[in-house]
């Protein structure tokens, strides 16, 4: 028996919007720790790791570890039917091949349940090693989204370079090239508008902008984004989900021949 009641149901809607274009089918794993997902895109260039901790749910019952295979597009379709203020409950019986999403309006005058078929998905879990990153950039998520969108109108790849001057996002394409430099800026009144750069070593890596743009679909989940870079490692683009956990995107770099 599994029953997870999430008062902020729209968090789940936002999570699905953030991952459904990157990953088609995925196993959601439910344990005493929380509701999680790890999945790669079909070309194995990007990996998404989601954790919604059990403490973040109003009610969390998970009698045994369960892995539920879902088509994310279908799940997104169902969650779109929930109102933004609705409480969402995820329910599944042991051994069932369906999952039920129950939507309750805040004043309890409307209750809907949507039952979705589960699927068998062969997926392997990857071990993500703890790494010391050369540079960690924290910036407003909307600013990062803007930069990725702007640069992708010029080129296909972005070079992210961190030096003591700041973080530079560069691209080049047929029509020309573009560079955006963001400097550390902690003097603004609101911490969510600041940019902080923690650099242990300068680092410069190249990534496909198409994926970066896809990650920025998680922007509604968090006002800030953390970008962790190390040479010879996938970049981590992390959006914290307030009180609940995180969604992390890992993107393998493009490497010189």
């Amino acid at each position: 028996m599994l029953e997870l009641r999430l008062v902020q149901g729209n968090l789940l809607k936002k999570v699905l919007e953030a991952v459904k274009d990157l990953v088609t089918d995925a196993n959601f794993d439910c344990s005493s720790t929380g509701f999680s997902l790890q999945a790669m895109d079909s070309s194995h260039v990007a990996l998404v790791a989601l954790l919604l901790r059990s403490e973040g749910f109003e009610h969390y019952r998970c009698d045994r570890n369960v892995s539920m295979g879902m088509n994310l597009n279908n799940m997104a379709k169902m969650l779109k039917c929930a109102g933004n203020d609705d409480i969402v409950t995820i329910k599944a019986d042991d051994g069932s091949d369906t999952v039920t999403f129950m939507f309750e309006s805040p004043n309890q005058d409307k209750i809907a349940d949507f039952e979705m078929k589960l699927m068998d998905i062969d997926s392997e879990h990857l071990g993500i090693p703890e790494a010391e990153y050369h540079a960690i950039v924290r910036m407003p998520s909307s600013e990062f989204a803007r930069i990725c969108k702007d640069l992708s109108s010029i080129g296909d790849t972005v070079v992210i370079s961190v030096t003591k001057e700041g973080v530079k996002f560069s691209t080049r394409g047929d029509i020309g090239n573009a560079n955006v430099v963001c400097r550390q800026n902690t003097t603004v009144d609101k911490p969510e508008e600041s940019t902080t750069i923690e650099m242990h070593e300068p680092v410069s890596l190249t990534f496909a902008l198409r994926y970066m743009n896809s990650f920025t679909k998680a922007t509604p989940l968090s006002s800030t984004v953390t970008i962790s870079l190390s040479s010879e490692l996938p970049v981590v683009v992390e959006y914290k989900i307030a009180e609940m956990g995180y969604i992390r995107f890992y993107l393998a770099p493009k490497i010189e021949d």
Partner: peptide
């Protein structure tokens, strides 16, 4: 030129 690497080149299966 640049070659796209994959996640599985960095992270091993559990």
């Amino acid at each position: 030129g640049c070659n796209q690497s994959t996640i599985t080149e960095f992270f091993g299966k559990i």
